[in-house]
Design a protein around this nucleic acid. Structure first.
Lengths: 194, 194
DNA sequence: CACATATGTTAAACTAGATTACTATTATTT
DNA sequence: AAATAATAGTAATCTAGTTTAACATATGTG
């Protein structure tokens, strides 16, 4: 079944009955996107929270000077959305774009409440998922304040070696909050140091 | 009743029955702290999630150079804890300290599951609360990347005028991720510009 | 294949913000 | 009221990271 990867994932946190699994499977949407396609565009309302089955997305923000700032990458078994826009159904601040061909299982906003009502365990599941996200987000704020760009680069490399190999350097620079030129400098220095 | 401010707050998100309110009230702990007291210390396990009735706390991190980085302030009707430590019951990365005499209503970790079991609505409530926190945290990451220190200062002033008036400037500088000297420079420039 | 478009590197000049160090106010305590 | 500690301001010098601009190398695409 197309929803299986999502059900497997949820079952790691709460245990679903057969019936609950079928209900969830009947409400979610399996969908494929091509590299370059947008899942959310700034200004639109984010209609789906997406669970990535395969592929990779970037969530980014374009500032007043036209500069792109990548907030987060997402790969297999991660969630992706403009969560602020999705939850409050207001216009999105961020863009979500596929940087590889991507298969997702989406939870449309208009079935969300229905899912919670029919499967209250999902309240718990999503609470746990978002707790994880919040903790990671706070850690990132601290790191951005207390670590140098070089240290942040090394931590990213160590934490997400899979992602580092899949994305172009200029996107990583954007995620780290530095220019691509400076990332290039960091890398060449690190090679010399070895 | 001492738990009333918390019950009122929860009732804004989900509606509790009399019985549920009594149950919650019987499980939470009302407590007073003096200015300067620690609620959580780095290395300890965070035992409580606290709802502030009155007062003000700062959550901060001390980096390898001994520098203090304030992650967040909390005032009346806000929650405070090292949420990562509390949820996973592992040792805290952060310190939470009162910067005013503070009254709190605390949810001890060891009654948390019991509360969720007896009042499943709380799963929903805490999901909603943490969603809000996560969205704010993401916004802060974006701002730190795309805005200058001056802009961040002006946004803080505008967003939390109450907090700005209650805290010393050097703590605000720490929260903004700059030195107190540079904040002083920003402020004097702003005065000249007017 | 050739041409375009996306990606990566290097280096010089520049700037936001840090560091250091000294002075000026406020609070708090005795 | 004097003394001490906590808070705030100023200014010179320094540095991590930016900007600009030129060049190099992939990778696709008609």
């Amino acid at each position: 079944m197309l929803a299986q990867p999502l059900l497997d994932y949820i079952n790691k946190f709460v245990s679903l009955t057969e019936k609950e699994q079928n209900f969830i499977a009947s409400k979610v949407v399996y969908r494929k996107y091509l590299k370059g396609q947008y899942i959310v565009q700034e200004g639109d309302v984010c209609k789906y929270q997406g669970f990535i089955v395969s592929g990779c997305t970037k969530t980014f923000y374009v500032d007043d000077n036209g500069q792109e700032h990548i907030i987060i990458f997402a790969i297999e078994n991660w969630w992706t959305a403009d969560i602020g826009s999705y939850i409050t159904q207001t216009s999105a601040d961020y863009n979500v774009q596929c940087i590889e061909n991507t298969e997702m299982i989406q939870i449309p906003f208009d079935v969300r409440e229905e899912l919670f009502e029919e499967v209250p365990k999902l309240e718990r599941f999503f609470r746990m998922i978002i707790e994880k996200g919040f903790i990671a987000s706070q850690k990132r704020i601290v790191r951005n304040f207390s670590l140098s760009a070089k240290e942040r680069y090394l931590i990213f490399k160590q934490s997400y070696p899979k992602i580092e190999k899949r994305i172009p350097q200029y996107m990583l620079a954007s995620y780290l909050g530095i220019t691509k030129e400076f990332l290039s400098k960091i890398k060449s220095k690190l090679i010399l140091e070895r």
